[in-house]
Simulated scan of single mutants.
Amino acid sequence: MSKRNFFAILALLGVFSAIGQKSKENKKYPPCDITEIPRYTAQKIKSPITLDGKPDEEVWQKAKKSGNFKDLIYGNETIHETKAAVVWDEEYLYVAYWVTEPDVTATLTERDSPIYQNNDVELFVAGEDAYYEFEINSFGTIYEVFFVWEDAYLSQGYDKVPNLGPNEEKKRDFKGVGYRHPRGNRYGFWNWDLQGLKTAVHVDGTINKSDDRDRGWTVELALPWSSLDILTKNSDKTTPPKHGDEWRMDFSRFNQYKEAEPAVDSGGWAWSSHGVWDSHVPECFTFIQFSETYVEAP
């Protein structure tokens, strides 16, 4: 990421923080309704998936899809359909997104550009004391950040992890976007990449051509368990997971357009609604339970 983009990101986050400052006060904890957080069983697969951005393999056809994403703040239905699914094997966590979008657009092509300024989909994977943020647009341009809660940074040894040291150039304090979390500050590392990550996007239509009608776009991700192991600190989780292990993950979509009034549309949609304009609330993430049962027929 260029220094210009990095500081642009910091400036934009500052704007979001200023906008959300008033809403941060007097919010309940957690801001979401915990009785409505979705629960999902991720089944195992027998053969690795070859990523091409088209989740049309047998495993994706048989895997259970999420419900349609709802508004991030209000929890109401959204104008276009967005769904996700999760499967896994001993090497990778696989995630797929199906995104309906009649006019697919994107502008950012440089890695770690502020992808949330485009229409994108996002994935957060949380541990007890840290979480990983991933974003991708329809060009396939990605953005990654790793966050560690300040109260665990030294005690859990994150300061000794490569690229997470106290003097990293792109390390900064992060207090959330639209919600003041009672746990306090996080350290964000904008220089951190998930090693071995695989991504692919397929567009069913034409990008940036508004005089035709598109169907949308799809995404396939493969996240190596060996790299996600950093999220198992201070927990009894393992990578790959054991049968019955439960992780917290967030799946969302952000749009630069909104449905016309009188509809109520924040522009952010998610599998699990957060009740606030802030994706950085792990207590509101979807529950993903891992099963040793296979998606494919015996």
Rank of each mutant, 00 (worst) to 15 (best):
D151G: 00
Y158I: 00
D159A: 11
P162E: 13
G165F: 04
G165Y: 01
E168A: 06
K170F: 08
R172H: 12
F174S: 02
V177R: 05
Y179N: 04
R180L: 15
R180W: 12
H181Y: 10
P182N: 07
P182M: 05
R183W: 05
G184H: 01
G184T: 06
R186M: 11
Y187N: 01
W190V: 03
W190D: 08
N191V: 01
N191G: 13
N191P: 02
W192E: 10
Q195L: 11
L197R: 10
L197D: 09
G205S: 03
T206Y: 10
T206S: 14
N208Q: 13
D211V: 11
D212V: 15
R213M: 13
T218Y: 05
E220H: 03
E220K: 02
L223P: 00
L223Q: 00
W225V: 10
L228S: 07
L228V: 06
K233C: 02
D236L: 05
P241G: 08
W247G: 07
R248F: 10
R248Y: 10
D250N: 14
S252T: 08
F254M: 05
Q256N: 12
E259A: 11
E261T: 06
P262C: 01
P262A: 03
G268R: 02
W269D: 10
A270N: 08
S272V: 08
S273N: 15
S273M: 13
H274V: 09
G275C: 10
G275E: 07
G275K: 09
S279A: 12
H280F: 12
E283C: 05
E283Y: 11
C284E: 07
F285T: 07
